[in-house]
Design a protein around this nucleic acid. Sequence first.
DNA 1: GTCTATACGCTGATAGAC
DNA 2: GTCTATCAGCGTATAGAC
Lengths: 185, 185
Amino acid sequence: MGRPVGRRGESRARLLDAALALFAEHGVSGTSLQMIADSLGVTKAAVYHQFASKSDIVLAVASPVMDQMAAIADAADAAEDKSARFNLVLSGLVDLVLDNRASASALRRDPVLTRLLETNEDFRAVLARIDAILIGPSPSTEGRIALVLAGGSLMVSGMDPSLADVDRGTMRGVLISSMTRLLRP
Amino acid sequence: MGRPVGRRGESRARLLDAALALFAEHGVSGTSLQMIADSLGVTKAAVYHQFASKSDIVLAVASPVMDQMAAIADAADAAEDKSARFNLVLSGLVDLVLDNRASASALRRDPVLTRLLETNEDFRAVLARIDAILIGPSPSTEGRIALVLAGGSLMVSGMDPSLADVDRGTMRGVLISSMTRLLRP
DNA sequence: GTCTATACGCTGATAGAC
DNA sequence: GTCTATCAGCGTATAGAC
C-alpha cells in the first residue's frame, strides 16, 4: 500500500515484478519499456537507470527461474535412489510452476525467452540433467514425447485463466499424478 | 522453386504461409510486415495490397484453424454414442495439430492470437462444444485441469523441435493414448 | 532514483505510378 | 500485383539536470 521504499534493490525488484507480469500478458516483444514504466508510474528514463537495455530486463526476469531449476536438479542428485530423484524433480517442478502461476509459464511460451534459454549453455545443461532424471539417460521415442507432453502441460496449467480459482493443494495433487501418469506409463 | 504463380489467390496463400511460419518463430508481436515482405521477396506495399492491416493477416491465419475445429465438433455431433464422439474429437484434434505441426501450436502460445480467439464468440462456442464432448457438460475440478493439461500438451507437442524427427504415425499413437490417459483417468 | 529532452531507426500504413 | 516514396508515431536508447 504505497510502501515508502528505500531499501536497496527494492525498486529493482518491483520493476522485475512489473515486467514479468507484462511479459506474461503481452509477451516480451509485445511489451515496451514505456508499458513497464507506466505500470510503475515512472518514466522510461527511470527504467533505464536500473537496466542498461531491454535484454537485460529479460535476462534478469529469467535468471531466478534458471537458478531454481538448477537447485531442483542439485537436490535430486543428492537423493538416494532413482525413484526418490524422480519424485524430487517432479514435485520441485510442480512447486516451481505453482509458486509463479501465470508468470513462470510465460517463460516457456514466449519466443524471445524460449530462444534466450535455448541458447544458454548453462540452462541447457540443467534441463538435460532434469530430463535424464525424469526419463533416463537414453530415452525411447515414446519417452521423449512424454517428456515434451509433461513439460508442456505443466507450463500451460500455471497460466490458464480457467484454472485461476483452483486451490493450490488440488492443483498440486492433480499435476503430480498427471505428470507421473504421462512419464511412467 | 520459383514457381510461375498466376493462379488466383495463390500469392495470398503464400503470404499466409510465410506469415504463419514467422508468427510461430517470433510471435505475432515479434513479426513485422517488413519481415513478412522480405521472406516473400517483395515490399511492404505488396503485402498491403493483399491485406488492409496486420490484424487482418492475423485473422486470416487463425480462421482456417477455427473452421477446422468447428468441423471437428460438427462431425462429432453426428456420431452415435458418447464414446464415438469422444474418439472423433480426440483424433480430430490430434490430426489437426499433426497437419500443421510447428505452425498450429503458435496459435495457442501467442498472446495476441490467444486474445483474438478468446474474444471471438464463435470460436468460444466451438471450444465449449469440444470441451463438453471431452469432459462432459458439468466437469469436476479434476476434469477441468485435465482438459487444460491435455490441450496444452497437445499444442506443445506439435511445436517442439526435439520431436521433429518423430514420424507422424508414432506421434499420432502416443498423442491419442496420452490424451486419453489424461482425460479418462 | 527520477526527471525532461532528444536522437534516430523501424513500425504500420497511405498515395500513386507502372 | 508490385513498385517507389512518404508519413506520423512509437520503439529503444542516451545526455544531462535535479
